Amino acid sequence: MTSAEVTRRRAMGAGLGALAGALAGCSGASGPVRRLRLATGPEGGPYNAFGKALAQAVAASGHRIEIVPVSTAASVNNLRKLDDGSVELALAMADAAEDAVLGREPFPRPTPVTALARVYVNYTHLVVAADGPVRSVKDLAGRPVAAGAAGSGVQVVTERVLRAAGLSGAPAPAPAPVSTPAPTSTPAPTSTPAPTSTPAPTSTPAPTSTPAPAADERPLGLAASVSALREGSVDALFWSGGVPTPALAALARELPLRFLPLDDYVGPLRERYAPVYTAVTLPAGVYGLTEPVGTIGVGNYLMARADVPQDAVRDLLRVVFDRWRDLLREVTAGARLEPRFAISTGEVPLHPGAVAHYRSVYG
């Protein structure tokens, strides 16, 4: 056991117990290699790239764990795989993860999953052809839109933005109840003579506003979305990922694009779905942008089943924090992984092994 590991064991909080410390100190020394399947995303996407980079980093670390990336449709699909036990680890967007834990649509019941770390932030992209008819979210009414693959986190945030804009085919959820104080009592009015009758006014129908037609949401993954926008079979595509996303950067080099602002929707989404949504900015220079574009940020969580052993979780997190520059290089530019950021997982509980790691290393 190295002196660093001895120091970590001594620094552990009393509530963690000696057993967790012993497991942390000995996990790399002996025993069989523990194989952990990691649900990532579609081939060529950022989750898939992160999963492959993590598998390589773990293999080079000397810890007795093996990460096996599994290609999927991404967040919602990944959370379901965690729940049914077909994987032990997963990547998922924060909004989908909270939906799973709280049992909100599309999850029929609360799902017992845990977080290991919030690893980076996705930026929501709404991309249209520069010479096309769409200049704002409202212009998507009745138009074909690439809305993210079925079972993806992109599809979740797309549906919520369109719903907030009144362009979703799904009914808008009821607003959260607002408590109001009970009215103060007032004395009964004194009697007054009955008013003389007056003829009833002729009824006139109240004006009705015709709702805008819903956007035509197409369940397309990133590669298919890019192809559809290039070919003109959709008027816009939604994407949630790192900056720059290589597929969009490549498209911007061959086709003039416009990236539409979405920051006006951060407030409504936070009000309805809690603070997993934040205001972020696509910086000038990326994708050829001449000025920044405000949009919606959503965290990405590295997640695990609660029954993954604590020593395996601690070994995995050591690799994540040692090699975060390599893991994020192909995913999002300029990102950092810091403990204060990593433990901010909202309604999603941290795995006990993650709690042990953060306490032992950072106090």
Rank of each mutant, 00 (worst) to 15 (best):
T7S: 14
M12P: 01
M12S: 10
A14M: 13
L19M: 14
G31L: 07
P32C: 09
R37M: 07
L38S: 04
A39I: 08
N48G: 06
F50I: 09
Q56M: 12
V58Q: 08
I67M: 01
V70H: 00
V76Y: 00
N78I: 03
D83K: 09
A96W: 00
P110C: 05
R118W: 04
H125N: 12
H125S: 12
L126S: 01
V128D: 00
V134R: 00
S136D: 12
K138M: 14
K138I: 13
L140Q: 01
A141S: 09
A149V: 09
A150R: 12
R163E: 15
A165F: 00
S168R: 00
G169C: 04
A170G: 05
P171Q: 06
P175T: 03
V178S: 08
V178A: 12
S185W: 13
T186M: 14
T192I: 11
P199W: 01
A214F: 04
E231D: 15
W239V: 14
W239G: 14
S240A: 15
G241A: 13
T245S: 15
L251R: 04
R253N: 14
R253V: 08
L262G: 00
D264A: 15
A274L: 13
P275I: 05
A279D: 13
L282P: 07
A284N: 06
G285M: 09
G288P: 06
T295V: 06
T295Y: 01
I296H: 01
I296M: 07
G299R: 03
L302E: 06
R305W: 06
D311K: 11
D311N: 11
R318L: 12
L328R: 03
I343R: 10
G346T: 04
V348K: 01
A354Q: 01
A356E: 10
A356T: 07
Y358Q: 05
S360R: 13
V361G: 06
G363C: 02
